[in-house]
Design a protein around this nucleic acid. Structure first.
Length: 318
DNA sequence: TGCCAGGCGGGGT
DNA sequence: ACCCCGCATGGC
């Protein structure tokens, strides 16, 4: 297993309030968070090991090759949303029937951003599948096709790249993706052929980025929008699926067809972030349970003895 | 055991 | 602009 060497130590000063634990624990596998330190894959097979240092975040950078401290700092700031100001989002959330529980418990949380390629894979794995099933696919993808490296005495797995998957498409079909495997390969091809360039997509506004991404066969509006939020921290366009549609319809008292408009009316530039937060608030429970919890007013994350968005980092098998 | 699940595309009307 | 269906896989 390749061992990465420490090449730099940097310190980040987040906009307050900031809670590194909450930021790292959400939707993390055990390879990437141990309860104290976060292990964050970065560009060019670098890894940042981050931990709290008072009000700041200390980061040790590990890298196998050429490396620019300034570029790594920028990337890490983006990944952790170090300068993002969520105060107006939380103000809205406090008064919202879906997110008031989240607002109370997740002060200081930021979404952890992902590279566009991996965001798309994540989103594709949520298509027409339960949370549990989708994340099992991803777990399997990383476990079987990721590249393990040794960082700070610990094994971290770098998620597979488009080339990794194209090199061995049959391995992909053993990861339980079903027909989604074909879409993942389409995405991989779009990246290796250059028809999707992450930096260029990042220059576009959310609507134009969506138009670009839905050119990929198997990528629709839900997948595109979720990816744009995860990769670029652009939250204008909500990835509304059947689950959100049902919950919002009940909570806001509008018909299902009106949900998308109503969601944007209420959440504005925070629309996608609110969708993401809702999955945390209701522990990504399957539709029927989620609706029951909403009806009972149980809209804060619970301690459950099965994987949820906020505790899945504790699980080393699925 | 069948169903069905945080979509999607392709076919209808 | 709608509506409806099939689709791989795994969980209940």
């Amino acid at each position: 297993m390749k061992q990465l060497k420490p090449v730099a130590a940097i310190e980040l000063s987040p906009r307050k309030p900031f809670d590194l634990h909450k930021t790292l624990c959400v939707y993390s596998f055990h390879w990437f968070y141990d309860g104290v330190r976060g292990f964050i894959p970065l560009f060019n097979e670098a890894v940042a090991v981050v931990e709290p240092r008072g009000e700041k975040v200390a980061a040790e950078i590990y890298a196998p090759k050429d490396f620019s401290e300034e570029a790594v700092r920028r990337e890490l700031q983006h990944v952790l949303g170090i300068e993002e100001d969520l105060s107006s989002f939380f103000q809205k959330a406090e008064k919202d029937p879906l997110l008031r529980g989240f607002a109370k418990e997740f002060v200081g949380w930021r979404l952890r951003a992902q590279p566009l390629w991996w965001s798309l894979v994540i989103a594709v794995c949520q298509q027409n599948a339960s949370f549990r099933q989708g994340w099992k696919m991803l777990y399997s993808l990383i476990e079987k096709l990721g590249k393990p490296v040794r960082v700070a005495g610990r094994e971290v797995v770098l998620p597979p790249t488009p080339r990794d998957l194209l090199r061995n498409p049959s391995a992909l079909s053993n990861c339980g993706l079903g027909y989604r495997a074909a879409t993942v390969l389409e995405v991989a091809k779009a990246f290796t052929s250059g028809s999707i360039a992450p930096d260029e997509v990042g220059e576009l506004d959310a609507a134009r980025a969506e138009e670009k991404l839905v050119e990929i066969r198997g990528v629709g509006r839900y997948t595109a929008r979720l990816s744009i939020a995860l990769s670029y921290r652009k939250y204008d366009l909500p990835p509304i699926d059947r689950w959100v549609e049902a919950l919002a319809s009940q909570a806001y008292g509008v018909s299902r067809r009106e949900v998308a408009d109503e969601w944007v009316r209420r959440w504005g530039k925070w629309s996608a972030l609110a969708v993401f937060a809702l999955t945390i608030a209701l522990d990504a429970a399957p539709m029927k349970q989620a609706l029951q919890r909403l009806a009972a007013g149980e809209v804060a994350p619970k301690q459950l003895d099965k994987p949820t968005p906020s505790n899945m980092w504790r699980y080393s098998s699925w």
